[in-house]
Amino acid sequence: MRAAMNTKRNLVTAALVAPAAAWLTVFLVLPFIAMLVFAFGERAPEGGYQVAFTFAQFANLPTRAAAFWNTLLLAPTGALLCLIVAYPVAYYLAVKANPRYRLILVSLVVVPFWTSLLVRTYAWMYILGSRGIPNLLSMIGIEDVRMLNTPGAVLLGIVYGYLPLMIMPIYVSLERLDRRLLEASADLGAKPVSTFFGVTLPLSLPGVMTGVALVTILLLGEYLIPQLLGGGKVFFIGNALVDLFLQSRNWPFGSAIAVTLVAVVVVVLMVAMRIAWRVAGTRQVDLV
């Protein structure tokens, strides 16, 4: 009787997780294996893939070094710029803001993240493009200012696109901060500045780590922002991948780059988790 009930329970459990398990296997695990196989293959003469086992694709990676350098330089720089803008906002929302308006102010930060990144990046293309600010500048006599297709434009787009994602985890860690610690610090004679650097900042570090890791990881795979605001002059790994897959149809080389990108993401993730564990326990972040 008991055994029968156990069997039935196991069957129900299996039935519940089966569709997701199948989906994860067919559309996540298998594609990764396929990508790995492709990365060790050769390009067919007409493009696409040809069966082989060679390390040639990985040996070829240095030819795309520029894309890797741009990504590895601009992704962390962008994340740090985000952090500089995000921290004061998160601090204000969690500590200073009037509780009556807090929810609305937080919503106003989250909502842009869930609206089309394409449209939000397009907005800056519109503003920085020749009919936008440069046109206004030429009206007051400043001619030939180029804003689009510069590293600055890409960084601006990055801060604009990923600011909400940086603010949220920091806000959450600051909001959960025990106010009595701040009072205790003040009672013991600490000035607000030393309370901030001695108590508030260290306790919000897990949020800061989560935000920096999250934004950096997403930026490593960014395509749209460098494509639209960098205009082919400032390109990321993502742009090299689109070029290799959809233009020159060199799938094995593209797969090798994609595999390398995943390796970089995993390394960043592991370093971030290491630091996060050392700083404090991990906290869950509401992204919605």
């Binding site: 795979g221 593209g254 994609a258 990108l261």
Partner: peptide
């Protein structure tokens, strides 16, 4: 967490 560009590529080559 895996970047969309990698998901896209992996799905494409597998399919």
């Amino acid at each position: 967490v895996v970047p969309g560009v990698v998901i896209g590529i992996a799905t494409l080559v597998a399919l």
